[in-house]
Design a protein around this nucleic acid. Structure first.
Lengths: 345, 345
DNA sequence: TTGAAAGCGCTAACAT
DNA sequence: ATGTTAGCGCTTTCAA
């Protein structure tokens, strides 16, 4: 049987009201009463009933995160790290985290609606913004608090954090151009993802900066998995006039390309350059280590969470829209080895 | 302003009670009333207040999942897939999923306590069982519903799903012994993890099956990351009498070992055999593809979630303790290539 | 400094 | 077939 305010009130010989105020440290309660109430509450192991509190306060102190999932084999290192970021920050700030999983579409939107109307959550964190993002349209229109990881093209009056993927990709492209590459392959993301759009644009801008042309046949699209990267890598590298550098819009696909190249007997970094984007932990310790752009996912999770909670609490926010400047991580997958390691141990 | 039963009652001209019963399809409400109530509820967009319901029903219809996280760079593919499994199943069965993140320890235990006392959740899903698992002790003792992914040695009267990691590792070891390997390296998990214990035991059993000895110097421990695998792989392979086969207790470390071997100019599969455990999606499309044991994480997530909800609902359960038989995935990292690919495209 | 009373929105026991 | 009443545990006026 859970301990209630009533139980404490009986023990102390005061009213429920007084006990409630004592526990909240109101200043119209005598110090003696406060001390006694606190002591008894402690002894009894009192924990407030959260539903009674929420029903009364009309607030949930909970944020919602609806993970867009596709098939069952859903293993994206992005999500665990991001989740750790928002989870830790939410705990710091005294919020709960309610997680749902839905494939993008109608049911997903319904989940947003239901979670806020019930009301299970006070606001949402959105990830992987999409073209014509229904989630953002809906939440904006209903004036429901939310913060997104990612921008949109046609809509800019909402809170977000994003990395400047265009700039990051420009860095990569210029890096490869500096190495003398002229013929590029590009592994694009499905068109719906905004991050793919910015990264692709940055890549094309990078080419333009260097007065290079893109062969449209070398621009291919994959579902962001290593499997897709592997397949597309094979496709590109077995063309009659293959690219000398392959730029993937994320690390997972880049790793697939590396496998494909090695499968074909090519030495990545020397025979063909491969680059990724995200700097997932795997990127550093694969072989060869992957040249990529760092994206601080954990920190972005923390930032987004904090911004959302401030928004919910109607606290002032320094900056509602944050674009992080990325940094390039140059590793052997683009610059190759100087053959020291090749020559032997 | 959210729509309440009262609003509907006013519109329909009936009492709140009747409306409630109509919406719950009780048979002591006239069909006409039901129809009218439903229609108005629909029009008004009525969604029940979850806190009022939960306060009244003394149930939360929510399950808790407290992710054990360590440092910030927490990127374990295990968690996103597992989360998708429990998330989807919970949604199917009408339950919410409350996620917290805590490093193992006292605060973690407090989180269990608080979440169930508030009461935010009806029960928990536990992952990565540990030696002397405080979580399991606590929940068992308090008779709080929970289901674990993983067994324990000293405690067996709780519900769990686990894969027979010992058997899986025996399969791997025998496979390698069949290939003629006699000198093995082993990358162990930190001692606290039960899964590491079973897998190590299976490995040693496998050696015994084949009348092989283990050189204790080749038994090393890592933190399950690719980085650790890389470092330990370098250590093992640069010994004066290095192992010819390296068995890692998880895929991530095995991938690190592969990188280390390649860094040293060795051809994995031919010069040295490397194996993993888990069959994460990466295992199939790395180079060379990784020999490993499949672990159906998504399905385990579903199973564990369903078992927990049955337990909460006090429904009969077919089997309270499930051990899955694993299957071996033989790939090139152990058997090598027939040099067709090496010879050219 | 404290308490009585009302109410958050819902369900359920008990009338009628 | 429907309504009245009470109560889940808490917070918050308003009085005393």
């Amino acid at each position: 049987m859970p301990v209630t305010l009533k139980d404490i009130a009986q023990q102390v010989g005061k009213s429920v009201t007084t006990v409630s105020r004592a526990l909240h440290d109101f200043d119209d309660v005598s110090p003696e009463t406060k001390a006694e109430v606190r002591q008894i509450a402690e002894e009894l192991g009192y924990i407030p009933n959260i539903h009674a509190q929420r029903l009364q306060k009309q607030r949930t102190d909970t944020i919602g995160f609806i993970m867009p999932t596709y098939g069952p084999r859903f293993s994206d290192p992005f999500f665990s790290e991001f989740l750790a970021g928002i989870g830790n920050q939410a705990a710091n700030l005294g919020f709960d985290l309610l997680v749902s999983t839905r494939p993008p579409g109608t049911m997903e939107l319904k989940a947003y609606q239901k979670n806020v109307s019930s009301p299970r959550v006070d606001g949402f964190i959105i990830v992987r913004t999409r073209q014509q993002d229904q989630r953002i349209k809906f939440l904006s229109q209903m004036e429901i608090p939310f913060v997104a990881f990612g921008r949109m093209l046609d809509h800019d009056d909402y809170a977000y954090v994003d990395e400047d993927g265009g700039y990051g990709m420009e860095l990569i492209t210029c890096h490869l151009a500096d190495l003398g590459h002229k013929r590029f392959g590009y592994l694009d993301a499905p068109a719906e993802f905004m991050f793919g759009h910015y990264r692709r644009q940055g890549f094309l801008d990078g080419l333009k900066d260097n007065k290079l042309e893109m062969d449209e046949n070398l621009m291919v699209t994959g579902d962001l998995t290593q499997r897709a990267g592997y397949q597309l890598g094979l496709d590109l590298l077995t063309m009659e006039d293959p690219p000398t550098a392959i730029v993937a819009c994320n690390d997972l696909m880049a790793l697939g390309v590396i496998s494909a190249a090695q499968q074909l007997g090519l030495e990545v970094g020397n025979d063909v350059a491969v680059t990724g984007f995200d700097n997932i932990p795997l990127a550093e310790h694969c072989h060869p280590p992957l040249t990529t752009v760092h994206q601080p996912i954990y920190q972005i999770g923390e930032m987004v969470c904090e911004m959302l909670i401030k928004q919910i609490r109607a606290e002032p926010i320094e900056q509602e829209q944050i674009i992080l400047q990325p940094s390039l991580m140059v590793r052997q997958s683009s610059i190759g080895t100087n053959n020291q390691t090749k020559s032997g141990i």
